[in-house]
Design a binder for these strands. Structure first.
Length: 782
DNA sequence: ACCCTAGCGGTTTTT
DNA sequence: CCGCTAGGGT
């Protein structure tokens, strides 16, 4: 390793990188060089001879982050990084289970279910148990089961409190049994199996605890209960293995899917962290942007505490715009973005962020009509597409005929006259004999038996024909031989699906050839995998290649573990549209943060959760810190949502930003009815003890080296008349003070619906916020 | 076996 | 408002 790598680090980064073999907790602020610290530390440990490549484990949450780490490390180190255990929690668990499949009680060729496969599998269980799918909604049940697994609870460990829950536990047990029978594991199972194996097998535990001398965990604030427990088995507190945990409690935005920020506190305490290292020097954003981020997050109570600073200049104040409607908000964003682009900024360096996906629609249509290129992130990923899943199901049957999920998916697709009746009979036969659908085909006679037999012959024919072929040839042959290609060729709008199948063939080809892509999963040096040179019994790597599973099996695993790009089409310079969640970890020269309205952001439903407001605020913090040079905030007084026009007040987050860093492009006062600011502030103070909207003021004038936007159409539009406050047909206005006989004084937060359905969300002093039906509630304007 | 339509629900999401 | 799903009709 080049010693200049250390020379470029700031003192805190250097302290983190060169920390000894002791537990380390690194509080890494946004844009503080977190990935750099992680990779430089690994390089430093290796180059100093503190550890060999086999003694390092680095864990991330996403494949993208893992890949990034590997790439950067490869550039720093003179030798091959392949032997190192760098990957996602799930990816590493998978690797572990491939080596120890037997001890884990799995078949050698086990496959992985993705979330939609899991729901489908749960649904089959519910059907087989003759339960009502209204009462036991497959998706919800699958979610509950995953939750139990993340609590390390097997069916016998779950404490069911009512009959409904008892039944759910029964489904859980039946589901696990079904997975076992079919040789498949879901995502949560990957983690749980490894956890249980490490917990219960002392020899294995001792081996791995001795082996991994340094374990580095990225995004530690996102770990769930099971992941932390898992980690403690690999490197228990006080043991020889040193855990280096990097995270940012202020960027914890995944509590809703089980992340426990508390793991950071727990880690500090349980591992006896001697010194908490804070990376507060920010290398990304200008001063005004950081001032806003710091001020905002300061409103959170539960923090480890951290303040970002920068050596860069203040840059330009944030531009803030309050539009009369979502339509006009979109138009403003478009004009501003265009003007930035004309000023020399690439479109791909401009992000438009929103809290929920539904908000993208109006922005998209504005951009579409104006002919401005844009790209929306989110939606279906490559391996989640129906046609791709179909092809994968055929491929999985080649590997494992007992995979009932795949069997059911394609037994009659493309249509081959195997109807629901036939499938039902087959399922009954399978249930009666406790065997797989495939194995039960022989039990059926008559026409049904014949058509099923034909399907079996089709699969067996495919297997014979592809034996010994390259992965690409196998996939190609299956796409054709299954009839999928023909089916989409004859479909009038099957062109895109055909293209995706072509893409799948290409993906299969590059999976095998691309270094560090598929190879890691397939071929690993023997001593990197097992315990004292011993692999799982029966696991025999190919002598030449070191392959421990067939390329096909590896490819199928890859497909489940990495669902692929959100959108494959790159290329054209386009504006980047995404949710704030999707933007985490990314950065842009300019960011538009839209929909800053109470109810939307902070999101009304999120506020119901414990700590909901603080998580929403962290989300706002993440959004702000994505911007390098320019940040634009906007909101709409009225918005079309779920088919009705809704009226919202300004997000409280706007009031939590420093006035000096904001430049209001719409009048800050006057847009609302008179007295709104005071009433709203009072209501908040009385109702929730939170500070309200502060007085008016204008930010400083733009300066710095960034191109100033040219005057745009909207500027004339906004400069002249004060936008008239949108009025609801009940005669009420958002922000208006009202009196209710029972609840007293309040302020209207949201208005929606019309006529008999008209409703208002009103913030009352001590009674809190309430939804009232306007046809019933007696409200007096005050 | 497939197509159409009524009905429902609509925060965020990776593996 | 709009997209997905289940279930019924042909």
């Amino acid at each position: 390793m080049n010693s200049t790598l250390l020379a470029h680090l700031n003192p805190e980064q250097l302290a983190a990188v060169t920390l000894g073999a002791e537990p380390g907790l690194i509080l890494a602020g946004a844009g503080s060089g977190k990935t750099r610290v992680l990779t430089t530390r690994i390089a430093w440990l290796l180059s100093q001879g503190h550890v060999g490549p086999g003694g390092v484990m680095a864990v991330t949450f996403t494949n993208k982050a893992a890949k990034e780490m590997q790439t950067r490390l490869a550039a720093m180190l003179p030798y091959n990084v392949r032997g190192m255990w760098i990957g996602t929690f799930h990816g590493l668990c998978h690797r572990f289970l491939r080596a120890h499949w037997k001890a884990a009680g799995l078949p050698q060729g086990f496959q992985i279910l993705d979330s939609s496969d899991t729901v489908a599998a749960v649904k089959r269980v519910i059907k087989a148990m003759n339960l009502d799918e209204e009462r036991f909604i497959p998706k919800a049940v699958a979610h509950t089961i995953a939750h139990w697994k993340e609590d390390a609870a097997r069916p016998k460990d779950v404490l069911a409190r009512d009959p409904q829950e008892m039944k759910m536990v029964e489904i859980y047990a039946a589901y696990d049994a079904q997975c076992q029978r079919e040789g498949v594991v879901d995502f949560a199972e990957l983690m749980l199996r490894v956890y249980e194996l490490m917990r219960d097998d002392a020899a294995l535990r001792q081996h791995y605890q001795a082996r991994f001398q340094h374990i580095l965990v990225d995004e530690f604030q996102d770990t769930n209960k099971l992941q932390y427990a898992w980690l403690k088995l690999f490197a228990p507190p006080g043991g020889r293995g040193a855990v280096f945990a990097v995270g940012d409690d202020d960027q914890s935005i995944y509590a809703f899917r089980g992340a426990q920020v508390g793991n950071m506190h727990a880690f500090e305490r349980e591992y006896g962290v001697r010194r908490l290292i804070k990376l507060e020097q920010n290398y990304r954003s200008c001063g005004h942007i950081l001032d806003c981020a710091n001020h905002l997050i300061d409103h959170n109570q539960k923090r480890l505490g951290k303040t970002l600073r920068t050596d860069a200049g203040q840059g330009e104040p944030l531009r803030v715009f309050e539009a009369p409607s979502d339509f006009e908000e979109a138009r403003w964003v478009l004009e501003e973005a265009q003007s930035l682009h004309r000023g020399g900024l690439a479109r791909a360096e401009i992000a438009i962020l929103y809290r929920s996906n539904a908000q993208s629609r109006v922005i998209e249509s504005a951009l579409f009509n104006a002919g401005i290129p844009y790209r929306v992130y989110g939606g279906l990923r490559f391996f989640e597409r129906a046609e791709v899943k179909h092809a994968l199901a055929y491929l999985r049957l080649l590997e494992n005929v007992n995979d009932d999920t795949s069997f059911l998916r394609v037994v009659n697709f493309p249509a081959r006259a195997i109807g629901a009746r036939t499938v039902e009979q087959l399922q009954d036969a399978a249930k009666a004999s406790g065997r797989s659908l495939w194995q039960s085909v022989s039990a059926l006679s008559g026409r049904a038996g014949v058509s099923l037999q034909k399907f079996i012959e089709l699969i067996e024919g495919l297997r014979r024909a592809t034996e010994g072929q390259t992965l690409r040839a196998i996939v190609e042959h299956v796409v054709e031989g299954s009839g999928l290609a023909a089916h989409y060729r004859s479909d009038k709008d099957g062109a895109e699906r055909l293209e995706n199948l072509e893409e799948l063939i290409t993906a299969a080809e590059s999976f095998v050839t691309q270094e560090g892509f598929g190879k890691d999963a397939v071929a690993l040096p023997v001593d990197e995998l097992g315990v004292n040179g011993q692999l799982g019994p029966g696991l025999t790597p190919d002598a030449d290649t070191g392959e421990i599973m067939s390329p096909l099996a590896a490819f199928l695993t890859h497909a489940s573990l990495e669902s692929g790009e959100n959108q494959a089409i790159a290329g054209a310079d386009a504006l980047q549209l995404m949710t704030i969640h999707a933007a985490k970890g990314l950065e842009f020269d300019a960011v538009f943060l839209t929909g800053l309205e109470e109810g939307l952001f902070p999101n009304e439903r999120a506020l119901q959760d414990f700590d909901g407001l603080e998580e929403e605020r962290r989300l706002m913090y993440v959004a702000i810190t994505r911007a390098r040079k320019r940040l634009h905030l906007s909101l709409a007084q009225s918005r079309m949502l779920h088919g009705q026009t809704r009226y919202h007040v300004r997000s409280r987050f706007l009031a939590e930003l420093p006035e000096a860093s904001l430049k209001w492009l719409s009048p800050k006062q006057g847009g609302f009815g008179s007295g709104f600011e005071r009433d709203y502030a009072n209501a908040w103070q009385r109702g929730s003890g939170l500070s309200g909207v502060v007085g008016a003021g204008r930010g400083g004038e733009a300066r710095g080296g960034w191109p100033a936007p040219k005057p745009a159409a909207w500027q004339q539009a906004v400069a002249a008349p004060v936008p008239k406050k949108a009025e609801h047909d009940s005669g009420l206005r958002v922000g208006q003070a009202v009196f209710h006989n029972k609840f007293g004084e309040g302020v209207v937060l949201t208005l929606e619906g019309a006529g008999a359905d008209a409703r208002a969300h009103i913030q009352f002093g001590r009674h809190g916020a309430k939804w009232l039906a306007l046809s019933v509630a007696k409200l007096t304007p005050i």
